[in-house]
């Protein structure tokens, strides 16, 4: 089970990459006094309406080239969410290599659950967002 050691290294690497993106992104927001056309006061506030629902993946990735602070933070958070998912993916191969087919199937089911959470559920909650309000 040496793959387990590799998996734990991958997990720690994921957290380290996330941390690096968050630190750079935070620094950029302060240096540029804002990001993506918003002022720092609009971004850093309890009542801020700037959140994860308002940005597409294309916007976030293209923001990296412009050294946009928010893009760096969003990428860091995406890396964090991806970390355990990659772990599940690696486990599928680990169980398949052991020829443990029951657990290969079980792990594939967990992976499908995660894909549903990322790609399917957002499709039908899209209309719900407009009704979400802050206290």
């Amino acid at each position: 089970m040496d793959l387990e050691t590799d998996i734990s290294k991958a997990l720690r690497a994921g957290v380290a990459i996330c941390l690096a993106f968050l630190l750079v992104g935070t620094a950029l927001v302060f240096i540029n006094s804002g990001a993506d056309g918003y002022t720092i006061d609009q971004i850093v506030s309890n009542a801020s309406t700037i959140n994860s629902s308002g940005f597409s993946l294309v916007e976030i990735v293209s923001g990296l080239a412009r050294l946009d602070g928010l893009s760096f933070i969003f990428v860091g958070l995406m890396v964090l969410i991806a970390t355990p998912i990659i772990r599940v993916l690696m486990s599928i191969f680990a169980f398949a290599m052991e020829r443990n087919w029951l657990y290969t199937v079980i792990t594939i089911i967990v992976f499908i659950d995660l894909m549903v959470a990322i790609f399917v559920v957002p499709q039908f909650i899209h209309g719900m967002i407009s009704t979400t309000r802050l206290p």
Partner: peptide, 13 residues
């Protein structure tokens, strides 16, 4: 978190 992301519950800063 993935569902929270779509719901807009993640404020980056």
């Amino acid at each position: 978190s993935s569902v929270y992301w779509a719901l807009g519950y993640i404020q980056p800063f």
